[in-house]
Computed example of a mutant assay.
Amino acid sequence: MHPTLITELRFEPLNLPLTEPFAIATGAPERADNVLVRLTLADGTVGLGEAAPFTAVSGETQASTLEAMASVRDALVGRDASGWRPIGAWLTEALPRAPSARCGIELALLDALGRHHRMPLATLFGGAGRALDIDMTVTAGDEAHAAASARAIVARGIRTLKVKVGALTPEEDVRRMVIIRREAPGARLFADANGGYTVAGARAFLSGLEAAGVPLALFEQPVSREDWEGMAELTRASRVPICADESARTVADVVRLGREGGAHGVNLKLMKSGVVESLAMWNVARAFGMELMMGGMLESTLAMSSAVHFAAGLGGFDYADLDTHLFIREHSFRGGLRCEGGRVDVGHVQAGHGVELE
């Protein structure tokens, strides 16, 4: 039997308590209800993966993710992990509405393959680098929460803050941004509405920031995923770069955004699209000359380490929103990414993503 044949696929719930609810414009989960994946090769190598469904973004749940994985398990056993890209493409067709399930399997497969060949994932993805500078999120909330979050983030040594907006009125969000600017005067500021504004609301938010003298470096997904015209209208008019997130789930989405001028950049998330689809999206976005952000849903150290390998290994990313592991209060993993201030590094990893289950 070939040593890299897949002999077993196992998965189970992975429930992770958070330091605070991860509040965005469309929801506020208080716990990460993820899925842990184990994939075994014929030589006994075991790879670990994680699926992080975020219901408010993709409609997936932990239960639906487990069900999706069960539906493809028998078809995966006996395949050669060396063909990870064809396997990823097949998963995209088999599970079109379950991207986090696909991603969890792909990550376990790639980790097993990396361990088998004694190769870190950053090398497998291209070897462009091993480290990234990240932001940290100020979740949706009131003004007191915004001030406390900004102070805590700056105390970590992180100098880029990504503020969740769109849950309140534009005027209320502007007041939150003013307070965050006061608490972190030298920080670079992003805003992420997760589709929570209308075009008029997004314009009011930008105008309010300009009047208040608050500089914004990036505005992510100001209007809903389906409002393609609104995204293009804001992109044409805004002096602040507009980044698509929910509007960029597939290669076809990125092609449409590029052709219609629907965004200056796109946020790639492995859990939103899967690994192989994200690779294709990276290529298309680069071909259109769009900026690139690497982001996450609500992953622990396991999947977040994999995202660092992906983005650092490929290179070409302008922004790294890879902070969700900092919101996980307790977990049973060791190894993987190292975080010092606003920099994450996987240069020490010898094989796979480097994360072990204690």
Rank of each mutant, 00 (worst) to 15 (best):
V214P: 05
A287Y: 08
D245N: 07
N194M: 09
V266W: 12
R159M: 12
K272E: 01
A212S: 11
E12V: 04
L18P: 09
E220L: 10
P3E: 12
K164L: 04
L109M: 15
L292F: 09
I153L: 03
H331C: 02
V308G: 04
P99V: 08
A320K: 02
F11P: 04
T40K: 14
E358P: 00
R338W: 01
I180S: 01
F219H: 13
L206G: 08
S82W: 08
L257H: 05
L14W: 04
G78V: 10
A307T: 14
T137N: 12
L218K: 01
G261A: 05
I242C: 08
T324M: 01
G129H: 01
I6D: 10
L36Y: 09
L36H: 15
A320S: 06
G262W: 03
A32Q: 05
A200K: 13
D135I: 03
G186W: 12
T65I: 11
M294Y: 01
Y319G: 00
L5R: 15
E93P: 00
A184T: 07
E60T: 05
L39F: 14
A147F: 05
T61I: 07
D135Q: 04
I158Q: 08
A147P: 03
M271I: 01
G129F: 02
G201T: 05
R85H: 01
D74S: 15
T65N: 08
A248Y: 01
A248E: 11
I158L: 01
S82V: 12
T139Y: 15
P17T: 06
Y319A: 05
D74K: 14
A52D: 11
L110F: 05
H2F: 11
M177K: 02
E299K: 03
A200N: 09
V163K: 09
D318F: 03
A155T: 03
A131W: 01
G44S: 10
D253H: 14
A211R: 15
A193S: 06
V346G: 05
I179R: 15
G341D: 06
G186Y: 08
K162Y: 06
L298N: 09
A28K: 13
M119L: 15
G166H: 02
L279D: 04
G141N: 08
R97N: 14
I105H: 07
S332T: 13
R182C: 00
A320R: 01
V35G: 10
F333C: 04
G59R: 04
G127E: 00
R176L: 00
I134G: 02
E30C: 10
V214R: 10
P215Q: 09
R97Y: 12
W84N: 03
S332L: 14
V275W: 06
V266G: 13
I24Y: 06
Y319P: 00
G289D: 13
T40D: 07
E233Y: 12
A248D: 05
D321K: 07
L268V: 10
G315Y: 05
A311R: 07
R338N: 09
L39A: 13
G127S: 02
G49F: 03
A191T: 05
V223I: 11
P215W: 07
V77K: 13
T92K: 12
V154R: 14
H116P: 02
L314K: 03
A128I: 00
S278R: 06
M1N: 12
D43C: 13
V72H: 08
E277M: 10
E340C: 07
V199S: 08
